[in-house]
Amino acid sequence: MPAAFKDYYATLGVPKTATEAEIRKAFRKLARQHHPDVAQAKDKAAAEAKFKEINEAQEVLTDPEKRRKYDELGPDWERLQHAPPPPRRRSSGVGQREEAQAREFHFEGTGFSDFFEQFFGGGASRTYGFPPGAGGSARGSGRQRGADIEGDILVTLEEAMHGTERPLRLQTIDPETGKEETHAFTVRIPAGASDGRRIRVPGQGAPGYGGGEAGDLFLRIRLAAHPDFRALGSDLYFDAELAPWEAVLGTELVVPGLSGALKVRIPPGTQNGQQLRLRGAGLPKGKSGERGDLYVVAGVAVPTVIDAEERVLWERLRDRSAFRPRA
């Protein structure tokens, strides 16, 4: 099942020479435009697909290692497309039986494209081969449990906030018979699912041998990048750009919280990088009902272009102010 090439630069509408900051800026702009929660109900499915596409593009292009690999891959695409699957797509156990378990897997519904899964290790592909007698085999009976499959599933912050159900389709190709099988099932993403957490889907791994039971599928949650928030555990961070006078004099901001907008008072004398905590406005912490916090991170932005009148005012402030940051 060859994967179609993805032009991530075109997806984000940036040139190949774009800096990381330019790529993130382009991502944020598109992400706000196509965020599933912003789209009209009738366009929701299309917006969701587009949102995942741009998320995948930024995932590759903002990671220096992945971007380098992607850039190197470009010219060799045609050749690599017909090459045998990379070793990581095979069961990693020892012995010939594990090698025999080397199946090709193809997911639909995880939020990652086949192309991403094949070349950037973010999607479904990793398997553990369990040697006979280890991890669930019936010893001495000739039965062997099938290998587990590991994959990633892209989850938006909103989905992590409220929980969701995701229909998935798993296609496998038996390397010996060439037989293709499709399994459709639904995975429930619980509210409070944090980045890196695994969800087990019993019996959806590789088939067993000699009557042994099938392995399991383990899906690792990957929280999608959000145009407004950064997530760390159950805490959210909102980077608030402030004008110098807002930082000095204080102001009031409206922050787009996941459960609705929140008013935040920026106190006078707010420093660059200062964090203001909004208790309980983050992501849920598992089943407890407790929520993490939302941190508003102040960043003082300065104008790069000023007119003559503004210059006069800034110069007057400079001459009048007793503030000496390096004193």
């Binding site: 369990f130 040697p131 280890a134 695994r198 383990f218």
Partner: peptide, 16 residues
């Protein structure tokens, strides 16, 4: 499920 996954990983590392 993370603990279950961890056990599978431990068993694999131990056996292999």
């Amino acid at each position: 499920d993370d603990a279950l996954h961890q056990i599978r990983r431990l068993e694999f590392l131990r056996a292999a």
